[in-house]
Amino acid sequence: MGAGAQALTHAAELLVTLDPGLVQIVSLSLRVSFAAVVIATLAGLPLGATIAVARFPGRQVLIVILNALLGLPSVVVGLAVYLLLSRAGPLGSMGILFTPSAMVFAQAILVAPIIAALSRQSIEDAWREYEEQLRSLGAAPVQAGLTLVWDCRFSLLTTVLAGFGRAVAEVGAVMIVGGNIDGVTRVMTTAIALETSMGDLPLALGLGFILLSLVLALNAAAQVIKEAAQHRYG
């Protein structure tokens, strides 16, 4: 039996038996990444919309920086957040290092630039189309921004999903700030890394399949919603 087939068998076994360890890991992965994306969206979306609509000095520089941050290595974020949250660091007194909260924090920092950069792009495209009409109707910049966000809601859904995909799939940051503690901060990706280092490659790959299927299912659902909405709303 090849490694791929073994991995599939493993994945199927874990799913069929609804392995409690697996359920916990998957649920923590989803909760942490979901919370991170919510926070990243709250921060990134207004930023993206502002850059899309407003004209100010340094705007181009900001766009370049944001786009560059799309490639931010997650270990760097992990390390920075670790130093920030470490007892010896400026936010050490909160005592949240090696907890899911720290992982949410790190992932939110990782994802916020993605949401900001991608939403900036779609909102700016829409702004080009809407600008004269909205200004003619007397929309103030903030109002225009909100209207654009609402009108771009379906393409922004894709943006948010892209952010979620990055969050749920990254391992560098959560490994450092979470510590991969069994039952506390172990998520899909760190579990995969652990199984890999224990040489259980089929199990690691099996977990990988499960992660992939989750992300796939989520994206498929979003795509269906988007198609239906686009058809309905035009």
């Binding site: 909760r31 919370a35 909160m94 907890t99 899911p100 909260s101 939110a108």
Partner: peptide
């Protein structure tokens, strides 16, 4: 932000 993170991820 941290408070939100803390709240969201609370087991």
């Amino acid at each position: 932000l941290l408070a939100a993170a803390h709240f969201a991820a609370l087991p």
